[in-house]
Design a protein around this nucleic acid. Structure first.
Lengths: 221, 221
DNA sequence: ATGTCAAATAATATCGATATTTTTGGAGAC
DNA sequence: GTCTCCAAAAATATCGATATTATTTGACAT
């Protein structure tokens, strides 16, 4: 109908658009954990039909951002410290595997990609928080994607998103402790470019553990 | 309408029924890898509406058994030796983590559950192949579920299913090499009951690697 | 002959409406 | 005053139909 005058025709299907928007709202906490997600309500919020909303919710179910309750509809996935700790543990395990495999496959084009992503991330840190989040994820995924293991990469991406959700929830936004994250990233990048798998994984995991402990402490409140 | 006269009212929603049925068909190879999955065709096969079929396919997408191609519908996920090797590798990694955590949490009720599952599996091996498959998965999942890590367990379950699919495809059915699988299971069970994490994981991983190599060799044909 | 473009065909994606199921709210009984 | 049960309301799940988008077919020009 008249949905083509939005931004610039980037969004293809209504389903995909709804998926992206809902995902964003859940990740940022705009739709708080445990909240009932009624079709009608969302249909209004995203102004689209019921079918795309339903399908988007179905997809989010498999990202574990939405829970489907038998015949009682959907709700935003709940959060818990326990769940957070599991995410952290799995990330450390899986990302170590992926990063080591990535480094084992290292070649010039991968290194170029890494440097580029890192550069973009630094640039984006001066722009909006939203841009930085995207660039940050892109950098971390670039570290892993040379493993050429699509399933593993997918799990890492999922866990990344589940984790970022806790960051938003704990910090009430992306203003998470501006300790020296930049230096941590630099160390990971340098180690990766040196093909030093041990150092790279150590730095990566420390990076996660550190933010993990910070967030974990925030969650006690 | 008149869908309540099927088996015994076990299936609740049409969507869930379609999901289970389609999943089964893809796992067993009744719907071969790469096959286009047209809504109309499946709507006829499962005699239900288009909406439940669509939603079931969406759900299977996140199990990685179905691929969604932009605006061109769905198809059964393709297979490849590369994909198989990744599945095997991830399973070894994740199941070791899960099994060790399970054993670390060991208590009497878990041990009882294990023994029961193992017994049921042995009993089912004399019944149909289908029953055995179910019992086999139940046993393997019981080994892991005491880790109390829902995400990890979910990944293991997914990977188990992806793997079983290769077994069906390679063997043309569940008649996979009747080497001494029974003894292997017994060893895993005994080690788990002894809380011997090292032995249990070694046996479990050997179990996977052995079937992995067998299937891998079959795939060259 | 071959490649390109346009009309016809088929399939998907989406909408609006209906039937089922769950939840809510209140009336009556103990 | 509390509990149970039934009716009303709301929400979900499903269906049938339409609009949109991809694919195929065939004709035309080169």
């Amino acid at each position: 109908m008249d949905a083509m005058l939005d931004t610039e025709g980037k969004e293809t299907s209504a389903t995909h658009g709804a998926y992206r928007r809902l995902r964003e709202m859940i990740l940022t906490g705009e739709l708080p954990p445990g909240q009932k997600l009624k079709i009608e309500q969302l249909r209004g919020l995203l102004d689209t039909g019921a079918s795309p909303v339903r399908e988007a919710l179905s997809l989010l179910t498999s990202d574990m951002l939405v829970e489907r309750i038998d015949q009682r509809g959907f709700r935003a996935a709940p959060v818990s410290k326990c769940n957070f700790k599991e995410i952290l543990l799995l990330r450390c395990n899986l990302e170590e595997t992926a990063l080591r495999a990535s480094i084992a496959n290292a070649d010039a084009t991968w290194e170029d990609r890494l440097v580029l992503r890192h550069h973009h991330m630094k640039k984006a840190s001066q722009k909006g928080a939203h841009d930085f989040e995207d660039a940050h994820k892109a950098f971390h995924m670039a570290l892993l994607d040379n493993a050429k293991m699509p399933l593993l990469l997918r799990y890492c991406s999922q866990l990344y998103d589940l984790n970022i959700r806790y960051r938003y929830l704990a910090a009430g936004g992306p203003s998470y402790k501006k300790r020296d994250i930049s230096a941590e990233h630099q160390k990971i990048l340098d180690a990766a470019l040196d093909h030093d798998a041990d150092s790279a994984t150590r730095n990566l995991i420390d990076h996660y553990r550190r933010t993990g402990e910070y967030l974990s402490s925030q969650m006690d409140s």
